[in-house]
């Protein structure tokens, strides 16, 4: 059985842990995510699609009767996942997720408690989605080998694009690790701004993923603020961020570029044409911020690269997008 799966499931209470371990042992499909919803059976997202977990550990394609999870059981799961430290998990919980030991991630759904217009806490948590982190070593190899990182005109900036669950963060992580481990002929100084603790998966201050020797992680910083701080304080050669999206992020990217650092970022997009329709990216392309765009295949094949495109060949800033 996979080590990462066992590690993630170990954090769950026995009523879930045992059937899940049994299910993983019996079925040869890869379990990617486990969703526990109050009033519904446990959903297991496998490489073959959604399955439902029975109490005896068997997976079914149709929801089984009398297998609904109770609200108290969801609460118990949350307590176990936070190691009975809901108080210290509160700042993360209000953002809707929890980073667990081993880099796994629990997304939560519940009722927001507002204070001064801001979410101060999420209570009555009714659903937990446990996403199993898997480091796919070597999935960024193509990016590391096909792109000339030691180019005379400077370190290239790369944008990794793909649909949800296509492995953008996994590829980004592998590229960071390669660059900060000297796999491209030299060690690059990389600063990672990890807003949602997804890249490094810091748990109690320790990175759960190997990001290389010359990598600094700014955990929990907002992307824009983190990029500026890194640029000022850490003199990075490359700044890496996950999921660019807002105008503020675009402003920070432009400042980073003018500050002399290269960018390594990911973005949600199904295709190259969808990518250049997004106003934020349109603006960044117009400033020729990215030298390469890496397109990932699909959610069915996470971490698989479809194409590496040179932006000066396509010229997206001129509207030549296919």
């Amino acid at each position: 059985m996979e080590r990462s799966f066992c590690e993630a499931v170990r954090l769950l209470p026995p009523f879930l842990k045992e059937p899940l371990l049994f299910a993983a042992e019996r079925n040869h499909t890869q379990i990617r995510e486990v969703t526990i919803r109050a009033g519904a059976p446990v959903c297991v997202h496998t490489s073959d699609g959604i399955r439902f977990l029975q109490k005896n550990g068997f997976l079914t394609t149709m929801p089984p009767a009398n297998c609904s999870v109770k609200m108290e059981e969801v609460q118990e799961c949350l307590r176990c996942l936070t190691e009975y430290s809901l108080q210290s998990a509160q700042p993360q919980l209000k953002q809707g997720f929890l980073t667990l030991q081993g880099g796994h991630r629990a997304g939560i759904a519940g009722r927001a408690v507002l204070q001064d217009g801001q979410i101060s806490y999420i209570k009555e948590i009714s659903a937990i989605s446990l996403r199993i982190a898997r480091a796919v070593c070597g999935c960024g190899k193509r990016i590391l080998s096909e792109i000339d990182w030691n180019a005379l005109n400077g370190i290239p900036s790369v944008l990794i694009a793909g649909p949800p669950a296509s492995g953008k963060t996994t590829v980004l992580r592998d590229v960071i690790r390669g660059l900060a481990s000297g796999e491209c002929g030299r060690f690059f100084r990389v600063s990672v701004v990890d807003e949602r603790s997804e890249i490094a998966a810091s748990y109690h201050g320790t990175c759960q993923h190997d990001l290389g020797i010359t990598c600094d992680v700014l955990d929990g910083f907002f992307k824009a603020e983190g990029m500026m701080l890194a640029l000022r304080a850490l003199s990075p050669q490359i700044i890496a961020v996950d999921e660019l999206g807002s105008e503020k992020d675009a402003d920070a990217v432009l400042q980073v570029m003018s500050g002399g650092a290269a960018m390594l970022a990911t973005v949600h997009a199904d295709s190259f044409s969808a990518l250049s329709k997004r106003p934020v990216l349109k603006r960044l392309f117009a400033h020729q911020c990215f030298d390469f765009v890496v397109l990932l295949k699909s959610a069915q094949t996470p971490g698989v690269i479809d194409a590496i495109i040179r932006t000066d060949e396509i010229k997206p800033w001129e509207g030549n997008c296919r």
Binding site: R79, T82, E83, Y84, S85, L86, Q87, Q90, Y121, K123
Partner: peptide
């Protein structure tokens, strides 16, 4: 009580 509820409840 310890660790089982949100901070205010604890």
């Amino acid at each position: 009580t310890i660790g089982a509820y949100d901070l205010m409840t604890q």
